[in-house]
Design a protein around this nucleic acid. Structure first.
Lengths: 390, 390
DNA sequence: ACCACTTAGGACTTTTTGAGACCTAACTAC
DNA sequence: GTAGTTAGGTCTCAAAAAGTCCTAAGTGGT
């Protein structure tokens, strides 16, 4: 009882309710109250009156549908050498996209101005209010300050506030997340959307783990959760890692390590993507390298699975292009090492959105915030407050 | 705006507010609304009007204090050979307790009737309404059915519904949890009460891990999270575990394994508690065994810390009696294996409530549910609804 | 084909709720 | 002492929501 307009919108968005009667039944509110809130939502353009649904023995109900075109969210997945950009409608469908290449190791002053310019173009191309912006970074993001980071991997970005860079494109609320966390969020719209406990591996040049427990992203005390690449493993004993330590999982299994190993054996491979392409073309050495990487990562994942009992392991990142061979390696170790209970119902799935998953995840992050009941209520309040005193 | 009476009670309980004015300031509600809710709470006996506080430049405010004697919660920590029982006031202070010993491996039909009888006595001794019952079990608890379990370790308890056994003592809502999870909950009232990300190790006869991430207990998809004892480690290679597998951490580091090792070397030790007693008395072999156990557990914890970035590691269970030596072993491995970011702010602490922590955790579980805003509102609704039609 | 029954939902009335104005109480600071 | 400040009770009025009554538009039985 006493649900707000935002709560009702959430029931409609999630599909739990479709009609005014549904809302009344679920919330226990009187129809008068439901009608008032629904009217506020339709007035604001957030809700559309759809067609009549089939009768269930009486007058057929008119359906209420969420207006996915009532606004847009912007997404920017900043990578080490490339940034993907896109605008999404409120259901998470892509409206338009762009891409910016930059030097590996480039700082925010080089990377962000062109990103802001492209975002501004996307905003102009679709004449809708921007409700939020989601940005992912390949490093640790401070969960408290939200808009800053302290990364051991990418230099020049430490403690940078992104908001001023993007002010030219939009003044919508900005949300910053870690690349693996954002990958995990993309599964909210994907195949694992009904799973509340999830491990999402980002296997690319580096290794990252997005953890969803009880439906919430786990970011840890200092935002440092998910650093799976820097867990020590025997197979990497003695090998130096790019983080400065010795024996990290990354030193044996990350994309950069596989590429380095190819170079040692005299093969011309400069990026993991070339390696997955070779594997897909049937190259035995490439397949062996990827499977071995899966096996090593699976050893650590096996421990994580025993400790966290997720419903599924989702594999994203560049290596997931060769999902079959990579997952074979993962499964090999996982089923050998995790407990029976933890693997009983476990699934190993490829990321739903492939190489655009990070982008989708950024959109989900922005949408989660923009369409949260409290945010919707605040929007309606501002609308009514603004129109009356005019 | 529009906080319910339950929300206000929570603000008062947490200490965020102490007076009606505080409540108005924090919630933004008018004083009229605050006064009405406060009156409902005082009428229900949940709130008491305390003494006047010091003036801050004007009329001194009357303080509102949560009536911790408005009810009681019951707690039962069921162990392998012993069950601890107690009644608590609404602040988590113990009012009375009891203890029941039973055979190792006893089933619910032997264990639960005497537990129910003692709980009934505790209820009778303190004439207060019972708002909830918290029970912990040394095994996996199904998070969906809540009142059942499927444990590989304790036989005869699989899928047992506890409610009928306790119906003679009380009909208050029953909450069942895993022993390690409940240990973790006890820290809500303890030294780590302000920490939202926590790993709580239960090191006793068996090994368990309670995980709190973002303030929520992580129980996993099938309630199987925290099975740290059955992570494979090299040091246990070849050793059979009581779970049937080979190479589990428990086989090298759990209490039962340490006791077995003492027996092999001809020492008369039958329980971990004897081992910690020896260690506290200065026995070198006992200290070495405990420290080595800590070191091994710390290796797995190191991985967990890198993946979850907790604020603290809390050590409970029988082995925490020798916290200093055990923690030394833990720290040794943790700081060698976890990433710099994850250990930067990390603390290793002993469980606040020692051997009564499980009991306190059960109380916290019951209190969390009984005093949740929604539960308080339902209570007030029932009260007013019941008195009017009479 | 007709009629009783069911469900949806609009319009109006009554009750409840809470915000705001106004007042008194009880202190501090000068 | 008096002005200023904070707490908090009381009254009024407007808004919100529950309840009632009505019409609309279907289903199913005879």
């Amino acid at each position: 009882m006493n649900e707000t307009a935002g709560d009702l919108l959430e029931l409609l968005r999630s599909g739990e309710a479709q009609t005014r009667s549904d809302l009344g039944r679920i919330t226990g509110m009187s129809r008068t109250a439901v009608v008032a809130r629904v009217a506020a939502l339709t007035d604001a353009g957030l809700l559309l009156l759809g067609e009549e649904l089939a009768s269930t023995g009486g007058r057929p109900p008119g359906s209420l549908v969420f207006n996915v075109d009532a606004g847009t969210v912007l997404a920017a997945a900043i990578g080490r050498s490339r940034t993907q950009l896109a605008a999404f409608d409120l259901a998470g469908t892509e409206l338009g996209s762009a891409s910016v290449d930059h030097e590996v190791g480039a700082g925010p002053d080089e990377v962000l101005p062109p990103v802001a310019a492209h975002l501004a173009e996307l905003v102009a191309a679709h004449d809708r209010p921007v409700l939020g912006v989601g940005i992912s970074l390949p490093g640790t993001v401070d969960p408290v300050r939200g808009v800053s980071l302290a990364s051991p991997v990418i230099a020049g970005w430490d403690g940078v506030d992104l908001a001023p860079y993007l002010a030219t494109a939009t003044d919508a609320p900005l949300h910053v997340g870690n690349d693996a966390d954002v990958l995990a969020l993309s599964e909210r719209l994907g195949h694992a959307s009904s799973y509340d406990d999830l491990l999402v591996l980002k296997a690319s040049t580096g290794l990252g783990l997005g953890i969803i427990a009880g439906g919430h992203v786990v970011s840890g005390h200092l935002g440092g959760a998910g650093e799976i690449g820097h867990v020590p493993v025997d197979a990497a004993a003695g090998r130096g890692c790019r983080c400065g330590a010795v024996g990290c999982l990354e030193a044996a299994a990350a994309g950069w390590a596989l590429v380095a190993r190819c170079a040692e054996s005299g093969r011309e491979v400069h990026h993991v993507r070339e390696l997955t392409a070779l594997a897909l073309a049937g190259d035995a050495e490439a397949k062996a390298l990827l499977r071995e990487s899966g096996r090593l990562v699976g050893e650590v994942l096996g421990t994580a699975i025993t400790l966290l009992n997720p419903h599924a392991v989702v594999v994203g990142g560049d290596m997931s292009a060769a999902f079959d061979v990579y997952a074979a390696g993962l499964r090999e170790s996982i089923y050998a090492r995790a407990t029976a209970l933890a693997t009983r119902d476990l699934q190993v799935l490829p990321s739903t959105y492939g190489d655009r998953a990070g982008l989708v995840g950024c959109a989900v992050m922005a949408l989660d915030n923009a369409l949260a009941p409290a945010a919707i209520d605040a929007m309606l309040l501002e609308r009514s407050g603004r129109t009356l005193p005019t």
